[in-house]
């Protein structure tokens, strides 16, 4: 049966019209779904019984609790949600002082095949619906503590743009959760057409996975470079205004001896010169059988200091949850393998 949770107001308007209910009912349903956090249609007490019966005949709310959780000693929790019968997605809850960030997935598996990514090893298993994306947020036990959401879990968000855009619309609309879009960051590997559409239709922050400023090197790490060059990604980004509250950041995982040299610092400084952005350095969480190794701490600090001294705002992302399969995709891959072995 179709789910109501995850419908936009526009979609609810259509449903209400088809049901022959008063037009204001769509807003009432949105309130119940996204402001009152109900879990049963019968809880919509200001909607007529006839209306509720109609909705129950066609829809369920569609919330689903996580099936597993792993908790780190640093407070990070990795939740596993089911998608379909044998597919799993991860959402990572990361508390940090007065912030609590949830990292959500947008696909089951991924098609992009980045060399350093565990999710890619699952192959692509399917798109997440708007319901499944938002359920990771709503069904989180710590839902009410959340301050930020980042689309940096499993999958490439811009390969599932329609659902991602609808989910951010629900999160940031007055009729939805009413969050500021500045609390939401969507990450991409740089699928240019979808990125342009996202920038035009959304006010959320953007994070771009760069990992190398050199085309030939980047395409060995990220096959997408063969299709959409990082130089073209930058050209597109520079068409937009980043001087306001909206932010763009570049994610940069440091791999020992691969992309952590002074040559890379100089090239990053050159291509980002004069562009208001931030570089987020990320320590590599090793994955099984990877040819890549994490850079050492001294190199990471040097990289950060030198980039900052060249005028590129650079931070190092704190590594969290290292005792609970920190690399994205590890937990769900283990669960997938376990279920396949059981079958």
């Amino acid at each position: 049966m179709e789910t109501l949770f995850g419908k936009t107001l526009q979609e609810l308007v259509v449903i209400v019209k088809e049901a022959g209910l008063p037009s204001f009912t769509s807003k009432q349903i949105a309130d119940w779904l996204y402001k009152h956090h109900i879990s049963e249609i019968d809880e919509m007490t200001n909607i007529s019984k006839k209306g509720r019966d109609y909705l129950k005949s066609k829809f369920v709310i569609g919330l689903a609790n996580p099936v597993n959780v792993q908790a780190s000693i640093d407070g990070t929790k990795k939740y596993l949600f089911k998608s379909g019968d044998h597919r799993f997605i991860e959402a990572a809850y990361i508390p940090d002082d007065d912030r609590a960030t949830l990292c959500v997935s947008s696909q089951v598996g991924c098609k992009m095949g980045c060399l350093f990514c565990m999710t890619g090893k699952q192959g692509f298993q399917g798109q997440l619906t708007v319901n499944e994306i938002l359920n990771q947020i709503r069904s989180l036990p710590e839902f009410h503590q959340l301050t930020n959401v980042v689309y940096m879990g499993m999958g490439e968000p811009f390969d599932n743009l329609e659902s991602v855009l609808k989910s951010t619309e629900i999160l940031s609309s007055d009729w939805g959760y009413g969050w500021s879009p500045k609390r939401i960051t969507v990450s991409t590997i740089g699928i240019i057409p979808a990125m342009r559409e996202f920038l035009n239709k959304s006010s959320c922050h953007l994070a771009v996975s760069m990992h190398s400023p050199f085309e030939d090197e980047r395409r060995k790490l990220m096959p997408i470079e063969n299709v959409y060059h990082i130089s073209d990604v930058l050209s597109l980004l520079k068409e937009y205004d980043w001087t306001g509250q909206r932010r763009v950041s570049f994610e940069y995982i440091l791999f020992k001896g691969v992309n952590d040299t002074p040559k890379h610092i100089n090239e990053l400084a050159r291509i980002l010169n004069g562009f208001k952005c931030r570089v987020n350095l990320i320590r590599f969480h090793s994955i099984p059988n990877s040819p890549l190794e994490p850079s050492d701490e001294e190199t990471i600090q040097f990289f950060k200091t030198r980039l900052n001294s060249k005028g590129v705002l650079t931070t190092i992302r704190a590594s969290r949850g290292q005792d609970i399969y920190a690399a994205c995709g590890l937990l769900s891959t283990k669960e997938l393998v376990k279920r396949q072995e059981e079958d």
């Binding site: 098609k111 095949g113 060399l115 692509f124 390969d159 060995k220 096959p223 997408i224 063969n226 890549l292």
Partner: peptide, 12 residues
């Protein structure tokens, strides 16, 4: 095989 020698194109 060194990963540096592997170039990929993925259908997406």
């Amino acid at each position: 095989v060194d990963y540096d020698k592997i170039i990929s194109e993925i259908y997406f």
